[in-house]
Nucleic acid binder design. Structure first.
Length: 633
RNA sequence: GGCCCCGUAGUUCAACUGAAUAGAAUAUCAGAUUUCGGCUCUGAGGGUUGCAGGUUUGAAUCCUGCCGGGGUCACCA
């Protein structure tokens, strides 16, 4: 039984003497303010009512009672409805011994429940960028946090390997590639395919402009009647709105989209998609070849950022399951069919709109595929308790719809699905202007480049000030990578996921202050002193604690609760802030109190043991963030 | 326009989900440390928590209304 529980038990007895029941909700603890004496504070306000006395009087009454019953309460002070309790050192030393004895301190025991965490899931036409890094680090860290909370976790991603966008890069490679391979071009596979996707886009833009010109001159080529009519109608509206430039621009965009859709190039791509759906051998072979290039490139990046997956899902495997689910939903009456054959769900009663789940031509849309994937996952893992989807917050509406659909289809696990939503990353340039990342404007921060850059920075810093004599080159490389990646991961994870963040390439990845390398440094320093000392066994309960030492032990003791909170909130930021505070506390101790030349052997042992436990928790907490800590740096 | 998210020191972020004088980092200024690792530590200045009401013994936190920023409302993914 811990301290809070013992006090709660006494408070319940105390309540009984007033013939009131003291519920858990009325018993609230908090840390004692720094400028007050005490280790733990009980809020008296909620307890005032039953006693019908002033907060001050109730505080003193409870204080006396607690001191009488619990011998490790040394003193108490009641101030304005706050009861500050001073706890004896031997109590905290006892807690330290508990922590020493627990190898897996902080982590919960197995609960035999399985959770799936989906993250990454990139577009195969675009190399990974900074936004994906936030996604990957978040998803990976949440997986570890859930494991620490006792879940069995399956890390997964859905690979969007199907659809018209894939055909675009395939078409471009066929037209402009001359059979070139990534190695011939000296590019990573994902970068290579991305290059052709961009080339397609360029060609399409030029062609769209040309076709638009022709249409404006009345030359409609092979365009179908209905499209020409639509165009003329839009053009009419456009011309009539000469006085409203904003509306006119909107119409102009619609016209562009229409033209874009009927260029010869787009027609060709659509034919290619049809050939793919019909399993045309040549098309599928090209598709397979190019996808494998992409996967190879992605895997290099995943290895580099030390992220991995237990199970991969491919959209090309699950979209058909999705269509079957739609049929099933039609039978159940969850969905309905419109005259043109398209299938919908009516969510107006839930405060949303009608949503399309299958196109008029019978092909799958985004949500169809997600329904199918969810179903496939349940088949593969029948004991699955829930799925966490790590996806940007611009898709919040989509996931609301998806979860509602799953629920209406009758899946009980739908209520355990969670959209781990995170904010976008804006960029700040050297002029201080904030803007969005846009591939078209070349303002995307490439993931590989960024990792290289932070590793380079880590090398420069470490060569200047590090303790790396006697390391082999290979060990040094590993260390720079560990530090650089640690800086990047910590930077992206310390912020509450829901908040959007601003990234300045020049300033953002610092190695000082509230950063990953700061944590790594503290761990390395503790490791260093431990190499020079002995630290076995339990500590004596009779030692006297300095204030910082007590603070450190108190902070250590909170670790299990931190893991629990991080798990229920799916928030690595909780862990990050906790471990940072621990390191700061420890540094303050380090600066003021020496260990190795302390003459009192019990005191020396206690300090060394406490340091070992601090190092243990740093290692454990940073592990939850996907960050490694070194022995030396 | 409807719905969702965000607004806290110059800047980047906290605040245990309603508690005492809103905390860190960074930058600035002033100091410490020849000794276990200076990527360290101590201190100072810096705030009407976007604005206005309301609920409460008590509000950055909950409610209402504004203001500002972003997102989303596709037979795109």
């Amino acid at each position: 039984m811990n301290l809070e529980q013992e006090i709660s038990a006494i408070l319940k007895e105390w309540g009984a003497s007033y013939e009131t029941e003291i519920g858990e909700q009325l018993i609230q603890f908090q840390k004692t303010r720094k400028d007050m004496e005490g280790d733990l504070t009980l809020l008296v306000f909620p307890l005032v009512k039953p006693a019908k006395k002033s907060p001050q009087m109730v505080g003193e009454e409870i204080g006396e009672l607690l001191q009488q019953k619990l011998d490790f309460i040394v003193r108490f002070e009641a101030v304005n409805g706050f009861l500050n309790l001073v706890i004896a050192d031997r109590y905290w030393l006892g807690r330290l011994n508990d922590i020493i004895a627990d190898e897996q301190f902080g982590t919960a025991s197995k609960r035999n429940e399985r959770m799936m965490v989906e993250f990454s899931s990139p577009n195969t036409n675009k190399p990974l960028h900074l936004g994906h890094l936030r996604n990957n680090f978040l998803g990976f860290s949440v997986s570890r946090i859930l494991e620490a909370n006792g879940y069995d976790v399956v890390k997964t991603q859905i690979i969007n390997d199907r659809g018209i966008h894939i055909c675009k890069s395939m078409m471009a490679w066929e037209k402009f590639g001359n059979g070139e391979t990534p190695s011939e071009a000296g590019l990573k596979g994902d970068k290579f395919v991305g290059k052709y996707y961009v080339e397609f886009d360029k060609a399409l833009k030029i062609e769209t402009a040309a076709v638009l010109n022709k249409w404006q001159e009345g030359d409609f080529g092979q365009a179908p009647e209905a499209v020409i009519e639509e165009y003329k109608k839009l053009q009419g509206v456009h011309d009539s709105k000469a006085d409203d430039p904003k509306a006119q621009k909107g119409i102009a965009d619609k016209i562009k989209k229409l033209v874009n859709n009927h260029t010869p190039l787009m027609q060709e791509v659509k034919l290619m998609l049809q050939r793919w759906e019909a399993r045309d051998e040549e098309t599928v072979a090209l598709w397979t070849k190019m996808n494998n290039w992409v996967y190879k490139g992605f895997n290099t990046t995943y290895e580099n950022i030390e992220v991995d997956f237990d199970k991969l899902y491919y959209e090309s495997d699950t979209y058909l399951t999705g269509k079957e689910m739609v049929d099933l939903g039609l039978e159940k009456g969850v969905f309905f069919k419109k005259d043109d054959g398209s299938v919908w769900i009516d969510l107006t009663e839930d405060g949303l709109d009608e949503k399309l789940v299958l196109r008029g031509d019978g092909t799958a849309v985004y949500v169809t595929q997600d329904i199918g994937t969810a179903q496939q996952r349940m088949i593969d893992y029948p004991d699955l308790n829930g799925i966490v989807y790590t996806v940007g917050n611009e898709q919040e509406y989509h996931f609301k719809v998806l979860f509602l659909i799953l629920e209406k289809l009758g899946y009980t696990w739908a209520k355990n699905c969670h959209h781990l939503s995170y904010g976008m990353i804006d960029l700040r340039n050297d002029k201080g202007e904030v803007g969005k990342m846009k591939s078209r404007e070349g303002t995307v921060v490439d993931a590989d480049d960024l990792v290289d850059e932070v590793v380079r920075m880590a090398r420069v810093m470490t060569e200047e000030r590090g303790h790396i004599d006697g390391m082999t080159d290979k060990e040094k490389q590993g260390l720079y990578h560990m530090i650089g990646l640690g800086a990047l991961k910590y930077f992206l994870l310390k912020v509450d996921p829901q908040k959007k963040m601003t990234f300045n390439p020049d300033e953002s990845v610092e190695l000082n202050g509230n950063t990953g390398p700061f944590l790594q440094y503290v761990h390395a320093r503790i490791s260093s002193v431990l190499r020079k000392s002995d630290f076995e066994g339990n500590v004596e309960l009779s030692a006297n604690l300095e204030n910082v030492e007590k603070e450190i032990i108190k902070h250590l003791a909170e670790y299990p609760e931190v893991i629990h909170q991080a798990g229920t909130e799916f928030s690595p930021a909780v862990v990050a802030n906790y471990v940072y505070d621990l390191c700061k506390l420890y540094n303050s101790f380090w600066q003021n109190i020496h260990m190795l030349n302390e003459p009192d052997i019990n005191l020396r042992k206690m300090r060394l043991q406490m340091s070992v436990q601090v190092a243990k928790v740093i290692k454990s907490a940073t592990h939850l963030l996907g960050i490694d800590v070194p022995q030396r740096m």
